[in-house]
Amino acid sequence: MDSLRYELPEVTIRSISVGEMDNNVYLLTSRKSGAQVLIDAADDLPAIQQLLADGASDAAADAQLALIATTHQHWDHVRALAGLVAATGAKTAAGTDDADELPAAVDVRLEHQDVGTFDGFELTAVHLRGHTPGSIAYVYQDPAGPAHIFSGDSLFPGGVGNTDKDPERFASLLKDVRERLFDVYPDATLVHPGHGKSTTLGAERPHLDEWQERGW
């Protein structure tokens, strides 16, 4: 199955689904430099290595995995992380408040609005507190089109992520999603979650009050 999802002017975005939880693994590759960032080394190291190889074919130069970025600490998002680090030597990044729970050392501990600069593109970290303490969404702003948000398990089509029926965690997550995503980015912005299909902020925005009312 072809992993290519978007051929943008500066990067390509590829994704695969791995493991029994159908986790999405995303790969951004600079079309000019070959710099790559992989988001969530969730499971199935051979499949992820094939994804990297497929992404390499999108670049005009030799590809190099610059960073393995993790959205949050949950087990189903990190099972291939240690193996991928061992195989590639790539640096890792995760939210500061989740970093100590990952199965591999974290080189870059991310705070809200930290910007990672790679050869050919940038990613902005958005801290979304609630699903886990250190959950991070990664935002790529396409200079020629809408932004792409890689939201982990914090935002899905139809609602925010699981907060285990904890009212405080739910309120925190919905507040951050409202203020840090919906209030910042326009309706055309694409949202790529940790499981399942992508959506747009415009498709979800009319339902924010419904989510607030139902409490999940």
Rank of each mutant, 00 (worst) to 15 (best):
A53D: 15
V177S: 08
D22A: 13
R5V: 15
P146R: 02
A42Y: 01
Q73N: 11
T132M: 00
D22M: 11
V160E: 05
A203L: 15
M1C: 08
G145T: 12
D153I: 03
G158Q: 02
V106P: 00
L201Y: 05
E111L: 05
T70K: 00
A105E: 10
A53W: 13
D209F: 05
V191G: 11
G194V: 01
A104Q: 07
Y138I: 04
L84K: 04
V11P: 07
G83D: 12
D2Y: 10
D164P: 00
A80H: 00
L8E: 10
P133T: 01
S33M: 12
M1V: 13
E122A: 14
D142P: 14
D153W: 02
V126A: 02
R205S: 06
Q113D: 14
A66D: 14
D76L: 02
A87Q: 05
L201W: 01
A82D: 01
D62R: 12
G145N: 10
F121C: 06
P103S: 01
F170L: 13
D176A: 03
A66S: 15
D100T: 09
H195M: 04
V18F: 02
R31Y: 10
Q50Y: 08
L201N: 05
F156H: 14
V108K: 03
G196H: 09
A35R: 09
V108D: 03
R5T: 11
V106C: 11
L128Y: 06
G95P: 06
E122I: 14
V18L: 08
A90I: 11
D40N: 15
H112W: 09
M21D: 13
A59H: 11
S30D: 11
N24Q: 11
T132K: 02
W211M: 14
L45S: 09
S57H: 12
I39A: 08
D62H: 10
V184W: 01
G202H: 09
A105N: 07
